[in-house]
């Protein structure tokens, strides 16, 4: 059963023709989404939000969107919280986000 590494290398080979999302993106033009993942965030569903965003970046083949996590953002009762950084604009914080809302926020960001 120990075949993971071979599996993933095969997947890599199969995907060679696909686009590489992070390549050739100027970091200064990158949209950065930060998901709060302290104890509060995790228990409120931050992992689902995080993975929904990563999935959507892939599904829509979005370039120049980076999703990362951070610790507790300080308003535990409002978790899951995401903070969106768009170059040249003030950061925006969204509270009580779920997977569907996160995907919608991402769609609006990309449209804008």
């Amino acid at each position: 059963m120990k075949k993971t590494i071979e599996d993933i290398n095969q997947i890599r080979a199969a995907m060679q023709s696909q686009i590489i999302l992070r390549d050739n993106v100027d970091p200064e033009k990158e949209i950065h989404i930060i998901v709060g993942m302290g104890t509060c965030g995790i228990s409120a569903g931050a992992r689902t939000v995080f993975n929904a965003l990563v999935d959507e970046v892939e599904a829509k083949e979005l370039r120049g969107v980076r999703v990362t996590r951070t610790g507790c953002m300080g308003d535990c009762e409002d978790e899951p919280i995401i903070e969106v950084h768009v170059p040249g604009k003030e950061p925006v914080v969204y509270k009580k986000v779920d997977a569907a809302k996160a995907v919608e926020i991402l769609a609006q960001l990309v449209k804008a």
């Binding site: 993933i8 997947i11 696909q18 590489i20 999302l21 993975n51 990563v54 999935d55 970046v57 892939e58």
Partner: peptide, 10 residues
């Protein structure tokens, strides 16, 4: 960290 690799690892 490329999304499709993350998905496959998952």
């Amino acid at each position: 960290q490329t999304p499709f690799i993350l998905r496959d690892i998952r």
